[in-house]
Design a protein around this nucleic acid. Structure first.
Length: 591
RNA sequence: CGGGGAGUAGCGCAGCCUGGUAGCGCUCCUGCUUUGGGAGCAGGAGGUCGCGGGUUCAAAUCCCGCCUCCCCGACCA
């Protein structure tokens, strides 16, 4: 039994100044966590109970799925990460340190290498597979900017599991087992979630899905189709290209003077103001009729830098996150003034396809949005200051080097599957299941002997759940204006029992007896037995702390009644004293 | 990495412009009163004013440097 008279907790009346998101404010005000370092948090007793409940649920569901728990050090030597090149590839996000002899170590951001090497160490036959092992371990990432409290720290707890199979079918089965286990896990945690298509990325592999918890404070943006159920991270969505059109009969491209049109908006205004440039179909010009060509630098992991030109319809901007994802592991950056000076063929504000492309004079690789299909006609830069070309037709007047799908996605865009309008929403990435493939097995030499005595390279999957982050996500999604509001299975207690009578009154022994009765039958009780604290304070604290059921022993006792209040709905029920214990046991059993 | 804002008691803030005994609310402690919606009265505790340097008779306050935290941004040609 937890007693508020002795519990190590202090609730705050005011919001902490360094907290921004609602869940973080409440976790701090309710005395669940304290910030201890930039991106690092101390768990207080109530928070730690909730954390361990979340961890227990995750562990139980992993075990139920037949996965086996192991535990690696968080402090690892450099060598394994050198073998996969991640010592350097991970960049500034990796915490590196040295021991007293100057040997390099790291605080692990993930453990693919260690899992792979462990299996290589112990297993050598196809008969040993499939295998899934997991751990629940503190991870370290040197985030450039920790934010939103526990949601994005530099030290956090993650459950990561890895599957090992001899072929793609086996990998698919391991993947599906995780998918099902994750759905059960999130349902039990009481976390609303959306499964979205995610990037398989440059890591290879065919399938990747994220479990997102929808909330405005999430840092991932995803699209959802209300019509067919399609859902995808904006980084992973592939838009459906329009059909190609015949180029025959389209008017020839013409270059026009377009003074004072440094932006798309001014260009469109000018086009519409010029009768001689009226569109053949009689419609007004819109930004969607223009082709905007953005030149970027790409820095490769080996340090080399190349240029890339991206052509997108003028009504859309390049989405930086989608671009980063599309060119990973290279890092994109704007060209900048120096870049324009170094490439005189590029006329700022008037870049057109003629000077772009690997076979052009500039040699700059030129990739276009999927909407720029053969037969589409565009207004775009004429590579001279103050001039644009009208009627430049893809497939006739220019041929890009390829397609890149990095334009911004917006609400109302067509669903790639069914064509209906999609919705946009934000979410927190709570889980990620991912078919890794053979990248790590190849890099680290993980093979097993097959039935024919020949080595088979193992294929792997990796699957994560943010455990500490789940506590924050729960605080974010289940709380309200007055406080936290935990799902029962993760709550620090089942019953928050408030003694609202005067010290020395009947309420005290009655509440003590009820608490003891409940505890004896396995119901977890948080008893507010503080004297010299007014009932008002106790009620406010009960609402703030977020235990799902609040029981008040007070003035109703004179009539033989005890008040039972549902934290979420606020609904109050008066229950006769003789029945209240059974009533509460039934509530708890019902979840 | 760029731009803003901030750092003064455990928490939230004022004071700084115009240099001169460091303040308010909450919390905490003592006593009395109070006990169904963040109580009242009285008394009290609690400070390296982020760090370092400088100017000055005198610096929370002015000047220089640094550190840290929070927010926004990171492309729009």
């Amino acid at each position: 039994m937890l007693r508020l008279s002795t519990l190590f907790v202090r609730t705050l009346r005011e919001d902490p100044a360094d907290a921004e998101v609602p869940g973080h404010k409440l976790l701090t005000r309710a005395g669940y966590v304290r910030r201890a370092a930039p991106g690092g948090f101390t768990w207080l007793p109530l928070g730690w109970i909730v954390y361990r409940n979340v961890e227990r649920i995750v562990r139980e569901e992993m075990d139920a799925a037949g996965f086996q728990e192991v535990h690696f050090p968080a402090l690892l030597p450099r060598a394994p990460y050198e073998l996969t090149n991640r010592w350097t590839e991970y960049g500034d996000g990796l915490f590196r340190l040295q021991d007293r002899r100057g040997n390099d170590f790291l605080l692990a951001p993930t453990h693919e290498e260690m899992f792979t090497l462990l299996v290589k160490d112990l297993y050598s036959s196809y008969k040993d597979l499939p295998l899934v092992i997991y751990q629940i371990q503190t991870k370290f990432r040197d985030e450039a900017r920790p934010r939103a409290g526990l949601l994005r720290g530099r030290e956090f707890v993650m459950k990561d599991s890895y599957s090992f199979d001899i072929d793609d079918d086996g990998l698919e089965r391991s993947y599906q087992r995780h998918r099902e286990a994750y759905i059960k896990t999130f349902d039990r945690l009481g976390l609303p979630h959306v499964i979205v298509s995610a990037l398989s990325g440059a890591m290879g592999g065919s399938a990747s899905e994220e479990f997102l918890v929808p909330t405005d404070v999430g840092e991932d943006t995803f699209v959802r189709c209300p019509s067919c159920g399609y859902a995808a991270n904006v980084e992973a969505i592939n838009i459906a290209p329009p059909p190609e059109q015949p180029v025959d009969g389209l008017p020839a491209a013409q270059v026009h003077d377009t003074p004072d049109t440094p932006t798309i908006a001014t260009l469109v205004d000018l086009l519409n103001a010029r009768p001689d440039l009226a569109r053949a179909d009689g419609e007004a010009w819109t930004p969607a009729h223009t082709l905007k060509n953005v030149v970027l630098t790409l820095r490769n992991p080996d340090g080399s830098v190349e240029l890339l030109a991206v052509g997108v319809p003028g009504d859309r901007d390049v989405d930086m996150k989608r671009l980063e994802a599309a060119v990973y592991p290279a890092e994109p950056a704007p060209l900048g003034e120096a870049g324009f000076e170094a490439n005189p063929a590029l006329v700022k504000g008037y870049i057109g396809p003629e000077v772009l492309g690997e076979s052009s004079a500039s040699g700059i690789r030129f990739l276009v949005d999927p909407r720029v299909v053969t037969g589409t006609s565009w207004v775009t830069g004429a590579n001279q200051p103050g001039r644009h070309v009208v009627g430049l037709v893809a497939g006739r007047d220019f041929t890009p080097d390829g397609v890149i799908d990095v334009a911004e996605i917006g609400a109302g865009d067509a669903c790639p599957d069914c064509g209906a309008s999609v919705e946009m929403a934000r979410g927190v990435e709570m889980g990620h299941i991912f078919q890794l493939g053979r990248k790590y097995a190849e890099a680290l030499g993980l093979t097993v002997l097959g039935p024919d005595g020949k080595p088979i390279t193992v294929t792997m999957g990796s699957y994560g759940i943010g455990v500490s982050r789940a506590v924050a996500a729960l605080a974010e999604t289940t709380s309200d204006e007055i406080g936290l509001c935990w799902p029962r299975e993760v709550a620090p207690a089942d019953i928050h029992l408030v003694i609202a009578g005067k010290p020395g009154s009947d309420a005290w022994p009655a509440a003590e007896q009820l608490a003891a009765d409940l505890e004896a039958s396995g119901v977890r009780v948080l008893l507010d037995d503080r004297d010299s604290v007014s009932p008002g304070v106790k009620f406010k604290d009960a609402e703030l702390l977020g235990v799902p059921t609040i029981v008040v022993v007070g003035k109703g006792l004179a009539d033989g009644r005890i008040e039972v209040k549902d934290r979420r709905t606020g609904e109050r029920t008066d229950v006769p004293v003789a029945e209240v214990a059974d009533h509460l046991r039934a509530l708890v059993a019902a979840g």
